[in-house]
């Protein structure tokens, strides 16, 4: 998966439901009461965001372990 471009320019991903192109937006990600704002590609219409695998398997996993005290 290619990395999202910076800025608000439309990217190659579009929302299958709404037909809108996904744009980079600030979204809150949280777990067990701790949150942090990150930039994710998001459909401006239905507000659903795309979590890329590098983030899910990288930073998110580390944060989950940290917060669970694993």
């Amino acid at each position: 998966m290619t990395a999202p471009e910076s800025g608000n320019a439309p990217t190659e991903w579009i929302c299958g439901k709404c037909g809108e192109p996904l744009r980079l937006s600030r979204v809150n990600v949280s777990y067990l009461g701790s949150g942090y704002p990150v930039d994710l590609l998001m459909c401006t219409k239905c507000k659903r965001a795309l979590v890329p695998p590098e983030m899910a398997l990288g930073k998110m996993l580390e944060v989950e372990r940290l917060l669970e005290d694993k």
Binding site: M1, S30, G33, K47, V63, E64
Partner: peptide
């Protein structure tokens, strides 16, 4: 082609 998972919640209510 690919599959992965996470537990962090995106957007929405932060309380669990």
């Amino acid at each position: 082609l690919d599959a992965y998972s996470h537990r962090m919640v995106v957007g929405g209510d932060t309380s669990l």
